[in-house]
Design a protein around this nucleic acid. Structure first.
Lengths: 126, 126
DNA sequence: GACGTATATAACAATATACGTATATGCGTG
DNA sequence: CACGCATATACGTATATTGTTATATACGTC
């Protein structure tokens, strides 16, 4: 396991991180709340710990895991280059929708350029 | 390939996306600028296209690929829950650094709680 | 110091991913 | 319509990752 990107690719690990975003949790807490077998939890935590994304504190027999703010910022930094793109395209999308609306009464010839359609279902947020 | 997270886990795919963040590119452009074998480029583009992260436009024999703003926002949305955490911890970090600074002259006893150290090298941005 | 709880690790099987090589398709041009 | 360029796909292989089961370590309690 190398990059933060590969690490957060795993759904269970994302679930763990989301849980830890709320408050620190013991391994058992995570095990119960996410209905994961304990060795699975431990293994994922190991990966997260090795990457410095979480840190653990010993409390008697249990270990409390908490989120570590640093490494995830790398993802945020990478995303930065696309942000300006998004805001730019919100306007474009709006113009596009307006145009479609208008075209509903006033039909035209189809576009020349063919644009691929996505095969997997849309995953846009409402 | 399922989630956007798994898709951006691949370094080559991230490189392609970064390239497309600048401007649309043909497959050959990507091949040359990233020094990747062509089938590799095509295969990664296929994955990105199927996920709706890029779209292609046919221009004679070449296909121009461009970024599609929607899907990457899912990652951004997921990261949102950690942002407040970051800003909160910037202050904490600052206090911590100040304390360390102060402690350089005025040595104290170490902490009671043991906190794990990361094994992989730090990856913070300057 | 034996026992139970809490967590970590080992070993193995199953699955998947990525790359390389070779080949197929599609389009424009002579 | 044969040829060449641009891109896509098929196939085999190496490698890696995940889940599962079993076991090891650590700690508090009786």
């Amino acid at each position: 396991m190398e990059s933060v990107f590969e690490i957060i690719a795993e759904p269970n690990r994302r679930a763990i991180l989301s849980l830890l975003a709320g408050a620190e949790q013991s391994v058992g807490d995570i095990e119960r709340r996410l209905r994961m077998p304990q060795p699975t939890v431990s293994k994922h935590l190991r990966v997260l710990r090795d990457a410095g994304i979480v840190s653990s504190t010993v409390d008697a027999q249990r270990r409390l895991y908490r989120l570590q703010p640093g490494p995830l910022q790398e993802v945020d930094a990478w995303l930065a280059q696309f942000r300006r793109f998004w805001s730019a395209h919100i306007d474009a999308l709006e113009r596009h929708l307006n145009r479609m609306d208008r075209d509903r009464m006033d039909r035209r010839a189809p576009d020349k350029k063919k644009t691929s359609t996505r095969k997997t279902g849309g995953r846009s947020r409402p």
